[in-house]
Write a protein that binds this DNA or RNA. Structure first.
Lengths: 178, 178
DNA sequence: GTTGCCATGTAAGGTGTTACATGATTTA
DNA sequence: TAAATCATGTAACACCTTACATGGCAAC
């Protein structure tokens, strides 16, 4: 699984430039790439060399030429094959859990503060996601099934943070009770 | 946050060799590093150069010399400082969600199969974690508070996969209903 | 007049994985 | 006879991030 597949995914909807793709990645919450130039522009070169996309260069007067990439038949085939791959388990890296692993050296007040900070961060993130979800996001809309899929993808993120919030609140309570 | 902090964490309990550390990382589920040689042996060299650990070389007859690393006062200070850092949000990379994003191109039966595969994987992982948790794991045990922390760390993982399982089951039902 | 948008890219460095290399001892 | 354990390390490569570089136009 690499960013190239996600790029092919976006291009399967419409032709885009590197700049467009960068924005798509930055706006997306479920797609976990940051959308940095290095990755995107180099991926596009690779995809082009592999014949999975075509490139149309459109000159502009005062701005750099736009390079508009379109997916090819081979590209669509590669995308489909990747989507059919047996899914892998998520990769979850929660550095807060690592901090907690060695947090017994802290004073009660320090630990309490640490836990509260995490709780607040999770809460803020959750609210952000809920808001973004509520005001109907950038999801595609060409079939009932696709709408369902995108709704469920959003709900995955939200339920993750909701679950995390519950967990950290319980942690705070248990520590207080001790 | 890097693997060096986790290495200092382990060394804060007892002196260890690179080989020991490798095992610790491989056995741990919450610590998300795989414990590959390259990372561990290079980190130990760095930590030694920075004066955060000391090295004792003990020759052996037929095996390579054991290099036993111990944490220094500076090392303990660095560990404590890191634990006190404001916690960051978890990094969640779920490639299955990316697959779903472009899964509307699949036939109903293909999509159903994809979802089922993911459900099974999550279920297996959850059972594994629950089992590992049940037969009292490799958690440290020097204070009530530390026991509480480690119990809560395990419960974080378990509730994550439980939540993920619920989510994918709902997804399956909604797709069927469609 | 500074910030943001458009649009391309490169450089440098950190992080992480898989595989290679050696070689004796114990266990199945 | 094959494998796992002990114990060190290196090589090659993939992935990812931050910052740098250019430069015009529009908006506030």
């Amino acid at each position: 699984m690499s960013i190239k597949h996600a790029i092919l995914g976006f291009l399967s909807w419409e032709p885009l430039t590197g700049y467009d793709l960068k924005k798509r990645f930055m706006e997306s919450t479920t797609l976990y790439w940051t959308g940095n130039n290095n990755q995107i522009y180099r991926s596009l070169v690779d995809l082009h060399q592999d014949g999975l996309v075509t490139k149309e260069v459109r000159q502009q007067e005062k701005l750099p030429a736009r390079k508009i990439y379109s997916i090819t038949a081979d590209g669509r085939k590669a995308l489909r094959e990747w989507v059919l791959q047996p899914p892998e388990l998520p990769q979850l890296k929660n550095s807060f859990l690592v901090q907690l692993s060695w947090a017994d050296q802290l004073a009660d007040s320090e630990l309490e503060h640490l836990v509260e900070s995490y709780q607040e961060e999770v809460q803020v993130k959750l609210l952000m996601l809920q808001e973004q979800f509520a005001r109907g996001n950038n999801a595609p809309d060409r079939s009932a099934r696709e709408r369902l899929l995108w709704r469920r993808i959003s709900s995955n993120m939200i339920s993750y943070y909701q679950n995390e919030l519950n967990w950290v609140q319980e942690l705070g309570q248990e520590l207080e009770a001790l």
